[in-house]
Design a protein around this nucleic acid. Structure first.
Lengths: 102, 102
DNA sequence: GTCAAATATAATAAAATCTGTATATAACGT
DNA sequence: ACGTTATATACAGATTTTATTATATTTGAC
């Protein structure tokens, strides 16, 4: 018995594309890697560590949050950002493996 | 002993981003899913099955091939396209899981 | 060579993204 | 209220994507 692949609904497809598009940027990949393994970081920690402007960091973080990649929690003056799905680590590993093998 | 995360070289980062960007499109995700499990399909099969114009299909296929997602092989009048890395199936599964759980 | 089928390319305009700079808002301590 | 720190937003020009349509190329059959 052959299993027919389950079709993705157009909305799921669009959501997946939009999420992938959010991830598909060098700086944002770096941000995600910086947050792997459940780490929570502030905007300042992120922009300092990755060597990008504060406004840039904030901007990219908003994109990642809007598309459902990150979540955040405000605490006083700080906003802590973290991965919403730890499985994204796996996704990045998969892509970098694909890249390296050529 | 804590393992420090290996940094990605800027070029690898750029390559990964560009590959992800290629994947991050509803039609192109559909194409990749259509080619999962080692299937090889012609442009006609792809554009017919997915219900898109021939030129569109060809266009998207070129993008996916240029960025290293697909490979192709010409045989007579037909060009057969197929996944270059079967592990991309896993990547798509990961993303759609992330999408559905909200 | 001519025709038809299969695929690829070109040209265009509209839409979305990116980067950098400037500015605004929020929260805290005094 | 004022100053400072942390974060978020707005704006604008440059670049990149996207969808559409039309056209070109390649290959095989005759």
């Amino acid at each position: 018995m052959v299993m027919k692949q389950r079709e993705l609904k157009p909305e799921t497809l669009a959501k997946a594309a939009s999420m992938l598009k959010a991830i598909a940027h060098p700086v944002r990949i770096s941000i995600i890697r910086f947050l792997e393994h459940g780490k929570k970081k502030t905007v300042t920690e992120i922009h300092t560590n990755l060597g990008i402007e504060q406004a840039m960091a904030s901007h990219h973080l908003v994109i990642l949050k809007d598309r459902g990649v990150l979540a955040s929690k405000r605490e006083g003056k700080n906003t802590w950002y973290f991965l919403k799905h730890e499985s994204l680590s796996y996704l990045l590993k998969c892509i970098s493996d694909c890249c390296e093998e050529e």
